[in-house]
Amino acid sequence: MQASSQAEAESCWSTIANDVLYWESWDEQHAVFDSLSGETHLLPELTAHVLRKLGEYACTARQLAEALCAETDESCEEHFVLDITRLLQQLQAVGLVEESTP
């Protein structure tokens, strides 16, 4: 219950509109073209996965970290939540994701 309340108070993250991002993927390497900014970004696997997930639904960093951990049956530790938060901030800095506060 406490964790849930904390999550609700956290920022919610989403990608900028899905229809402005164009993808090309080669094995575990990815390029995404943002047609709003005209910028091309080269992304490693985890970053691309995060961006695609946020294209499916908006969520908090904690919810996103837990969803990623659930995919590999790993326990979600606090340092991973922090890593995901930093990654989201980096994606926000280049204009690929947006943050909204409840």
Partner: peptide, 11 residues
């Protein structure tokens, strides 16, 4: 070379 490297060099 990998496709991503080729993409970067070509762009």
């Amino acid at each position: 070379i990998g496709k991503q490297q080729a993409f970067m060099k070509l762009a």
